[in-house]
């Protein structure tokens, strides 16, 4: 618990950020920070199964993209006033965040249920590849989905509506994302402390033993997979709002790779790891790209070095400095 104070500091800084930058003509920073938080959310969702459950999903972009598309499609129908379906009863589109976002989570969660139920029969490298295969299927599905722009993607007319909030305002959107991120982090910290989380980590460390103890490990893993998919869907719903645009590029396999990088960079199975990972990854890209168009030739070796020499991720590098004892205990 001693390492809570740097977190409080980070939270404070995050709360103050829009006001600080507003005075410095740096309002665009709010947008970058929002994007970082959204990627962190996607990372957190992947971390649940990857870091705590030991399931390396190489197709998490499928859930992310599906969430984005649900928001995009509903919003398009609302804009043009065309019903989504007329049978068995008429269902129209919506721009209401309170409807569209939970639906995005539901759709991504359902997809995760199907993909997870089939994929979890395999393990190890087979699991990595089968999740990739399913994600590719979804990718090609959206590429050829002519009605919603296919590869060209879908431009949103406006961001979702959320009660008294004006999400079109970057600052208000930023605070909403920050609040959601905090909420998810809080819920996840409870989840992994709860019996469910302990069982999940037990399965990660030794599945055979947990099975021998009588735990239905398959079911535990599947539930974690579905929760993770739904959370990725939420992140997708947010990115659709952030960019006011959705396209299959959100589901392409390098995107799944980015998510893994974010999780591992930040530190697998560290609650706040994906935050550090997302910030580092996106800022690194930003800084390197501003420096040279050949930025990938630097980013690549950095990844290799991090894997070789910083196994616990950046979070451990930071937190480890601050409270070495704790990092040693759960590392």
């Amino acid at each position: 618990m001693r390492d809570l104070w740097p977190l409080a500091l980070v939270l404070l800084a995050a709360l103050a950020l829009p006001f600080v930058v507003a005075g410095m003509d740096l309002a665009y920073v709010v947008g970058i920070a929002t994007r970082i938080m959204i990627y962190a959310l996607a990372g957190i969702s992947l971390n649940l199964i990857l870091g705590y459950g030991g399931m390396v999903s190489f197709g998490h972009a499928a859930f992310f993209g599906t969430g984005a598309y649900v928001v995009g499609i509903l919003s398009t129908h609302a804009t043009y006033g065309e019903p989504l379906t007329t049978w068995p009863f008429e269902v129209g589109g919506t721009e209401q965040a309170l409807i569209a976002w939970p639906l995005a989570m539901l759709a991504a969660g359902l997809l995760a249920l199907v993909i997870g139920a089939l994929s979890l029969r395999t393990a190890g490298l087979y699991f990595i590849m089968i999740t990739l295969a399913f994600a590719q299927m979804i990718f090609f599905f959206f590429v050829s989905l002519q009605a919603y722009g296919g590869e060209d993607g879908l431009s949103l007319f406006a961001r979702s509506q959320a009660g008294p909030l004006d999400l079109g305002d970057d600052r208000q959107f930023y605070y909403l994302v920050l609040a959601l991120l905090a909420l998810v982090l809080f819920l996840k910290s409870r989840l992994i402390e709860a019996r469910f989380g302990r069982v999940l980590q037990g399965i990660r460390d030794n599945e055979r033993r947990m099975r021998a103890l009588g735990y239905p490990t398959y079911r535990y893993k599947l539930v974690a997979f579905v929760i993770s998919g739904a959370l990725a869907g939420l992140a997708g719903a947010l990115i659709a709002n952030q960019t006011e645009f959705v396209s299959p590029a959100f589901l392409d396999w390098p995107r799944s790779g980015d998510f893994i990088v974010i999780v591992v960079l930040g530190g697998m199975g560290r609650l706040y790891g994906p935050l550090a990972g997302a910030a580092l990854f996106l800022l690194l890209e930003e800084v390197l790209a501003a420096w040279t168009e050949h930025w990938m030739i630097i980013l690549g070796p950095i990844l290799v070095l991090l894997v070789l020499y910083a196994r616990g991720g950046v979070w451990d590098l930071i937190a480890g400095r601050l409270s070495r004892r704790k990092a040693g205990a759960d590392g």
Partner: peptide, 8 residues
């Protein structure tokens, strides 16, 4: 070639 990056 990433739409969200272009947007940002």
């Amino acid at each position: 070639r990433k739409p969200d990056k272009a947007k940002e």
